[in-house]
Design a protein around this nucleic acid. Structure first.
Length: 468
DNA sequence: CTATGGCACGGATT
DNA sequence: AATCCGTGCCATAG
């Protein structure tokens, strides 16, 4: 368990320091790769059984309380809850940028998932089946999994269960592939089927998913290798394939990814590193902040390995010892990372709570340096922690973590607002004045730059009739 | 003369 | 140490 201590863990060696910094700057996706490869290659590191909340599947803390759903007694505090969550979505997959059709719809107008899917399947179904589809689609959870059963739907609508099955099959083949599956296993199989139609898939992939989800989830390479009578190497390949191409929670490849326009203009899809929600979804309650650890269990140095090392012969001792040190270093550094992230988020949530619940307009202007002072860490630590990370807000939008430090984004939104509401074209200087009234101090010159960034023409070329 | 875009400097970020 | 971003100053277009 990545227990977080209030006191920062002290880096002991330079190696420790270096690795801590590296891990800190990794995103979930990268982190998972890192842990994966270490887990596969280092026998001293192990992933052990963990307890989860039966309803939300989040990892339970030591005391056995779930900070999110099932334990209202632990939620009395007014303070935001910030914790590290080890979700078993180890196979967080990157969604394929090519498969996303119209890009505009995604970031701007958030069409909801049921509508999005419905539009795709409507043509394939007759009117009565469309009814069923609509009903099914309203019974999806955030992850795109079905929350009801086929039988129930069939009974409710007085139709044959096989008919519901049929509709469900159509839905599962729609984007995001696998929506409407009842289990993560089903979702994976649906995706596998669709992929198999166009490109080759490892034969073992299907078998493993069908036969041993349990071990798959836990990344038990060696056990899987034994059971399916093959090499660990092979298993690793298959699991890599699965994690790259499949996604147990279909809706997340859709909603759980973000287009991050990079400097080069290339859009990168990413999973959120951090989730922010209200406790029980109630906006009156404080936030629950989850820092995602992309493994479904607790990483630790294997006690068995330790024991084996003590009894090991001379010749193996050296090699094993280095394994053990690597493993222990990784675990320590992960703790450090989580600790830093947790404290950082605590601050961000406290400072930016208005912005998080009421929109970006309310963003406070904070610099990384200020936070670093509060947390008593070096400013570059904060930079690393923030770099490249993304956050999912309560309204399901996904934004870069750096947004909370961006001095210009909020001003830019206001600027666009002002211009779109303007009666007659306003000059840059006038806009600057208006912005100042709103509480944003900006130079006239800067207004011009923002305008250019947003692709808005200069005042004299702008007529109230035409826009953008 | 006013409104803008270009270039370069300095502080903040990485 | 290298880079990005907001600003100030200045030349240019209307």
């Amino acid at each position: 368990m990545f227990q977080v201590h209030t006191q920062a863990l002290r880096p002991l060696t330079t190696a420790h320091l270096a690795q801590t910094m590296t891990l800190l700057s990794l995103t979930v996706d990268e982190l998972r790769q890192e842990i994966d490869s270490e887990l596969a290659s280092n026998p001293a590191l192990e992933l052990v059984e963990e307890r989860r909340c039966p309803t939300c599947h989040r990892l339970l803390a030591d005391r056995g309380v779930c900070p999110v759903c099932s334990c209202p007694t632990s939620l009395e505090s007014d303070e935001p809850v910030v914790f590290v969550s080890q979700r078993d979505d180890f196979f967080y997959s990157k969604s394929d940028p090519d498969s996303q059709g119209d890009e505009e719809d995604f970031s701007t107008t958030a069409e909801d998932l049921p509508t999005y899917v419905m539009r795709q399947v409507a043509t394939e179904l007759d009117s009565e089946d469309r009814h069923l589809a609509a009903f099914l689609l309203t019974h999806l959870d955030d992850d795109g999994l079905l929350t009801t059963t086929v039988l129930e739907v069939a009974r409710y609508h007085h139709v044959m269960p096989s008919r519901v099955e049929h509709v469900l099959d159509v839905i599962k083949r729609a984007e995001p592939i696998g929506v409407g599956s009842r289990t993560t296993q089903e979702a994976l199989l649906a995706q596998l089927d669709v992929i198999a139609e166009t490109s080759p898939v490892p034969e073992l992939a299907r078998v493993i998913i069908e036969e041993d989800m349990e071990r798959l989830k836990k990344l038990q390479y060696s056990e899987l290798a034994r059971r399916f009578d093959t090499s660990q190497r092979k298993i690793q390949e298959v699991i890599h394939f699965i994690s790259e191409n499949l996604n147990p929670y279909p809706a997340r490849s859709h909603w759980g990814s973000v287009r991050e326009p990079t400097q080069s203009g290339v859009n990168v899809y990413q999973h959120p590193d951090i989730l922010i929600n209200y406790i029980n979804g109630d906006p009156e309650k404080p936030f629950v902040v989850e820092i995602i650890m992309p493994v479904g269990g607790m990483l630790r140095v294997s006690p068995m390995f330790r024991k084996a090392l003590r009894e090991a012969g001379e010749e193996k001792r050296e090699a094993w010892k280095s394994d053990l040190e690597r493993a222990s270093l990784l675990v320590k550094c992960l703790q450090q990372r989580n600790n830093t992230m947790q404290r950082l988020m605590q601050q961000i949530v406290t400072i930016q709570k208005d912005a998080i619940s009421h929109g970006e307009r309310q963003l406070k202007s904070v610099t990384r340096v200020e936070i670093s002072k509060i947390l008593e860490v070096h400013e570059s630590t904060i930079s690393r922690a923030v770099a490249g990370k993304t956050v999912q807000l309560p309204n399901k939008r996904i934004v870069p973590l750096s947004m909370f430090f961006d001095r210009s984004l909020n001003i830019r939104t206001v600027l666009c607002d002002l211009i779109s509401k303007e009666k007659k074209p306003l000059s840059d200087a006038e806009l600057a004045k208006l912005l100042e009234k709103e509480g944003y101090k900006v130079a006239r010159r800067t207004v011009a730059k923002y305008r250019a960034m947003e692709g808005i023409l200069p005042a004299h070329l702008r007529h109230s009739t035409v826009k953008v």
